[in-house]
Nucleic acid binder design. Structure first.
Ligand SMILES: [Mn+2]
Ligand SMILES: [Mn+2]
Ligand SMILES: [Zn+2]
Ligand SMILES: [Zn+2]
Lengths: 151, 151
DNA sequence: TATTAGATTAGAATAATTCCATTCTCGTAA
DNA sequence: TTACGAGAATGGAATTATTCTAATCTAATA
């Protein structure tokens, strides 16, 4: 936590209580929260916090390379404070997102004709699956009802 | 086109002019349009068509396995009538999406502990890059201005 | 402690997507 | 043919995600 403060001051970020709350929530968080998830959580401590502040903070953190934006859930972006290159798997039933720390970089080279047309800047693999919990639920709960359990 | 009609009737889809227009627009289309792109295009021929109809049609087509939903642009979904397994590259400047018909399936195996937790149902690689056009534009156009050129 | 760049806020605006009630129509059975 | 009924189309409202703005506030520092 102290490290966090130092780290962000070094980056020229102003540390406000709201920001600190967001940083603390994100620090070490492996749940891949959406902006809404973060907002809901921070609001418990700072009931007056604005959604805009969450988005603003996520934006600067993203620009500073401190969080990854994850495009795997078609409904919304998710954020990841772990900026080491890695991939994700999302449960197609409940949208839970898991980390995949395999290094596939050697295996997923772009074909030449694409590399000529696009200057590559990165890649990310979206895996889709059904998590254990949803596999069990499927035995007796309709898909429609499960939809309601999503965030 | 005749084939299209037969094909979709076989699937138990009711063919209406609006639907046919959407099907025709999608048939062989490699531009990876968003729902809005499709809507704008169809409206030229059927000015009264509803956005809801576009979404409805995309939904049934997706359920029937006739179009892929592509989650690569953080702003919105894109659709692809080519349902053969393939991957995509998106220009981080203008959001243009290109096809990658490489087979990486042998190379991107899930780690065991993940395969235990998730029953795999698929995967998709998002490549990010900067397209030729945007590489050139970058010489004299600000990023903000380029943002405006996006759809 | 005064200054001020940068942060926060509420709320409006925009954009994507979904939902719903009503109306319409395609395909078929009489 | 024609009437019927399932499914489709429609418009408009509702939701949800995200962005923008203008007014106000405050953390950092001189
Ligand atoms: Mn992650
Ligand atoms: Mn494609
Ligand atoms: Zn699940
Ligand atoms: Zn481009």
């Amino acid at each position: 936590m102290k490290e966090l403060i130092i780290k962000y001051k070094e980056k020229g970020l102003k540390l406000t209580p709201q920001r600190l709350a967001i940083l603390n929530y994100l620090d070490g968080n492996t749940s891949h929260p959406s902006a809404g998830d973060i907002y809901k959580h921070i609001k418990r401590v700072y009931p007056t916090v604005s959604f805009a502040t969450v988005y603003n903070t996520l934006q600067v953190l993203h620009e500073k390379g401190e969080v990854m934006e994850i495009t795997i859930d078609p409904q919304k972006k998710h954020y990841d404070p772990n900026t080491k290159a890695h991939h994700h798997i999302i449960c197609t039933e409940c949208n839970k997102i898991g980390d995949i720390f395999e290094d596939y970089s050697g295996a997923i080279r772009l074909p030449h004709h694409i590399a000529e047309e696009f200057k590559p800047v990165g890649n990310h693999i979206n895996f889709y699956g059904i998590c254990k919990k949803c596999q069990n639920l499927s035995r007796y709960v309709s898909k429609r009802e499960k939809q309601k359990r999503r965030d």
